[in-house]
Design a protein around this nucleic acid. Sequence first.
DNA 1: ACATTAAGTGATT
DNA 2: AATCACTTAATGT
Length: 212
Amino acid sequence: MQAISNLLLDKFHDLSDPEFIRDFESVAQIQKVKQGEMIIDYGDFISFVPLVISGLIKVSRTNEEDREILLYFLSGGDTCASSFSCCMIKKRSEIQAIAEEDSTLIAIPMEAADRWMSEYKVWRDFVFSNYDQKMYQLIDTIDRLAFSQLDQKLIDYLEDRSRFTDDGVIHVTHSVIAHDLNVSREAVSRMLKKMENQGMVTLERNSITLND
DNA sequence: ACATTAAGTGATT
DNA sequence: AATCACTTAATGT
């Protein structure tokens, strides 16, 4: 039980309250997910709040016309903002979370996450600041979908994703990008080629490097 | 060696 | 910019 709180403190420094940690240890569960694994699907009843320790999670939503839109990514130190609201009002999930890489999560039972809101200031602050942060990311996403042309969308997308790598190499195929941005694969390939000619990126099979 | 998948390209709408 | 048809290159079995 020592290990799990170390994981917590390593990625979530804001939650370092001794009393909280003790309570946390009694309910938290480590959950490992493999790349491509569906963590939350539409209509799932969410019974826990996930805290992401490592890896990368893609949170997205698909509309009636089967178009998937990317909402945001979660990496170490993040939590799923919409899972809170989902839990609190006992609603089924409106979104989908898929592991983009092998990832490690800590699952907090909804009952505890709820109770902590009134018991621990560190937890409450953490939840709200995270919610706020994710809201801004969502606004960015909306801007991107509504107003940007493909070149800008691509740059934003790549910058967004490169924040989650330490060597600047993004492991992704053109068709995955195309899918995330709701454009054709050919358009992505052509645009990336242009960007490569301008020296902005370096292209390899299955990976893209963003050059400042 | 062969099949599959990723990426590049030109033509058409 | 999307779709189609096709080519080329890399990777897996």
